[in-house]
Design a protein around this nucleic acid. Structure first.
Lengths: 120, 120
DNA sequence: ACAATACCCGAAGAAAGATTCGGTATAAAG
DNA sequence: CTTTATACCGAATCTTTCTTCGGGTATTGT
């Protein structure tokens, strides 16, 4: 079984928050589910750049953290549906603000990145 | 020179934002500088868990992105001082909110993590 | 001279995270 | 009976990020 090597600081709010929704596509997944895109296949179509596997893994994480919940009727082909929990919904305003900050300052940041030659 | 393999999407505000302040200690560094802890040595003392090197690297990144600026009078031993730029200050409310969200839901998340046996 | 201090940098390797590929399960449709 | 569809999981490999260690520079104090 996998065991983390480097200690975590879950008492830092920012650290905990970024653990919960800091994966490569978690924000997009939450956004998709919030828009009613409930099933893994459809989330995959909504975010075509993300690999199928990472969506599965991050859905699993979000489930563990209690950000989303799953309804899975056992008809076949399986049709799992995910929805946001109350706690899951509570981060949406935060994501919206991050997005807004990013879009507002995108030009500034890009400018700075090209001026200094470093590719970060 | 290091070259990124995987394409980035800098047009997503969240992606850009997390690129700018998403490193392991960038938030803490910004917090420190905001509190007037201006010099690398002192930042290091303020965040003893962070390695010296990562602080240097993340300071350099924040400088490139224009979140902080450097005053370096060339007396010796060198005394560089960092301060937040206007743009750098503009993310502070966001960080405060992330921290608040994290602290508010820390107990919930930790509970969920222990109930499901997975160590993430 | 020479240590001490403070900042910065490079490079090797470890750790975390993502990607890729393959597999399981089940039932309905062809 | 074979194919198709959907969800999920495991493992190898690759990419990115962090750690660790060492070095360089230039001044001040001994």
């Amino acid at each position: 079984m996998y065991e983390r090597k480097i200690e975590e600081n879950l008492d830092c709010g920012i650290y905990l928050a970024s653990k919960v929704f800091g994966g490569k596509w978690k924000c997009c997944i939450l956004d998709a589910i919030n828009r009613g895109i409930a099933r893994p296949v459809d989330i995959g179509h909504y975010i075509p750049e993300a690999s199928k596997r990472v969506i599965e893994m991050q859905l699993a994480e979000l489930l563990i953290y209690g950000m989303i919940e799953k309804q899975s009727d056992d008809t076949y082909p399986k049709k799992s549906e995910y929805s946001l929990t109350i706690v899951g919904k509570s981060i949406l305003p935060l994501l919206a603000q991050m997005d807004e900050w990013g879009l507002t300052h995108a030009a500034f940041v890009k400018e700075r990145m090209t001026v200094s030659q470093n590719p970060l």
